[in-house]
């Protein structure tokens, strides 16, 4: 009996070995991906310089690669989605966290989180079938040629990130301690006043973190945007916030990468490099969002 126990003790901890191996694998994949993107995009950076990022001039048949129009499309679509979704998400979250009985809150939360799990291609198809047509009709008086516009992409993305945004915002509101609520109520504040001047203020970093996470998701979304944005190159208006640009087709980094151009680029180092550079730029933008979200989340947890 005693010897059996002893044998066991010197067996290597398989679980630790395995988890280290997996961690190494994950980090390895990450580093390998980044290194590949950087190395393969080098020919394009060498050829185009900073113009690859700053110039609005993408005609691959003529060897001209300037992705500013796509960067603009990506950022505007993401910000539009956030601007449209955040007020709705905040409203729904306040209702769930502050006014709903705990038991029904759980039910609503399950419903919303299952909405967040709907695959993006489903949203995309709904966008093509319904949203595209509606937007085409509504926007026609404003000069839209069809339902494929920057705004359609923004609205569709807003619908897509709404569940994620709502449930994360609700978590942030829930995390404000009950004592604060009780104290504020004890001071004679009404329920609405408590929400406005205590809960929202306390939960602000959490709400911001949730927004950034939602923004990151919107920026990286491909299929749904691909189907409704129109995929028109070199759409960069003179002014940053231009109404006419909103009702015209556009191109985002993801809709370009989702198209068939990737297949044409293969074999031409500069063109392929430019496509890889688009990946890098996209990675940079979404990484920035995720990083800012993490930073705010930490700020928030250390403060409360």
């Amino acid at each position: 009996m005693d010897s059996l126990l002893l044998k066991k003790r010197y067996r290597p901890d398989l679980w630790a070995v395995f988890s280290w191996a997996v961690l190494g694998l994950v980090l390895g994949v990450l580093v390998y991906t980044l290194a590949t993107l950087v190395v393969q995009s080098l020919p394009a950076w060498r050829e185009m310089g900073a113009g690859l990022l700053l110039k609005n001039d993408w005609f691959f048949r003529h060897g001209r690669f300037g992705a500013a129009g796509m960067v603009y499309g990506t950022i505007v679509v993401g910000l539009l989605a956030l601007a449209l979704a955040l007020p709705l998400a905040l409203g729904a979250a306040i209702w769930m966290a502050e006014y709903l009985a705990p038991r029904s809150r759980w039910g609503v939360k399950v419903l919303i989180e299952s909405l967040a799990a709907v695959p993006s291609v489903v949203y995309g198809l709904l966008g093509v079938l319904i949203l595209r047509r509606w937007m085409g009709e509504w926007l026609a008086p404003f000069g839209a040629w069809s339902g494929d516009t920057l705004l359609t992409g923004g609205v569709l993305l807003a619908i897509m990130i709404l569940p994620t945004l709502t449930t994360l915002t609700e978590d942030a509101l829930q995390n404000v301690s009950q004592r604060q609520r009780a104290a504020a109520r004890g001071l004679g504040l009404t329920r609405g006043e408590v929400v406005w001047s205590v809960i929202l203020r306390q939960a602000m970093p959490g709400v911001l973190a949730a927004s950034l996470l939602g923004l990151g998701r919107a920026l990286g979304e491909t299929i749904a945007v691909y189907l409704v944005i129109g995929r028109m190159d070199n759409q960069l208006p003179e002014r940053l916030f231009s109404g006419t640009a909103l009702v015209q087709p556009a191109q985002t980094l993801t809709s370009k990468l989702g198209g068939s151009e990737l297949y044409i680029a293969l074999g031409d180092p500069v063109h392929w490099g430019a496509m890889m550079a688009l990946c890098l730029i996209l990675l940079g933008i979404t990484g920035l969002c995720a990083g800012a979200s993490l930073f705010l989340n930490r700020l928030w947890t250390t403060n409360s």
Binding site: R61, R64, R133, M232, N234, G259
Partner: peptide, 21 residues
């Protein structure tokens, strides 16, 4: 070098043409 809205597969082309004046 021109800029136009782009379409991919045949069914996408067909559907977008049907749905646009």
């Amino acid at each position: 070098p021109v800029n136009h809205p782009e379409v991919g597969s045949n069914s996408e082309t067909r559907n977008k043409v049907i749905g646009t004046r």
